[in-house]
């Protein structure tokens, strides 16, 4: 499943990071790694960007960027 397909309130574990370039590097350095759990806090009112919680902090990404990230083990979560 893609990160961009997750619903608010769900969490999943990153299984693959697609894409290359600046963005991929930056968000990896900010802690988006294989095996990391991400929680989808909410989507912005216009459905883009989305707010995520990773390693305990809040970060916002665009949907098209989230679509580069594949997640596993998606479940309803309470954080």
């Amino acid at each position: 499943m893609l990160l961009s397909e997750m619903k608010a309130g769900q969490s999943g574990i990153i299984s693959a990071m697609g894409g290359t370039g600046v963005l991929q590097r930056r968000i990896r350095e900010m802690g988006f790694l294989k095996g990391t759990r991400v929680y989808v806090e909410k989507y912005a009112p216009l459905k883009d960007p989305l707010e995520l919680i990773v390693k305990g902090y809040h970060i916002s990404l665009r949907v098209e960027e989230a679509a580069q990230i594949t997640v596993d083990d998606v479940k309803q979560d309470f954080l």
Partner: peptide, 10 residues
Amino acid sequence: DAPFVMELPP
């Protein structure tokens, strides 16, 4: 435009 990556501080 460049990708949008921004931390949202408390």
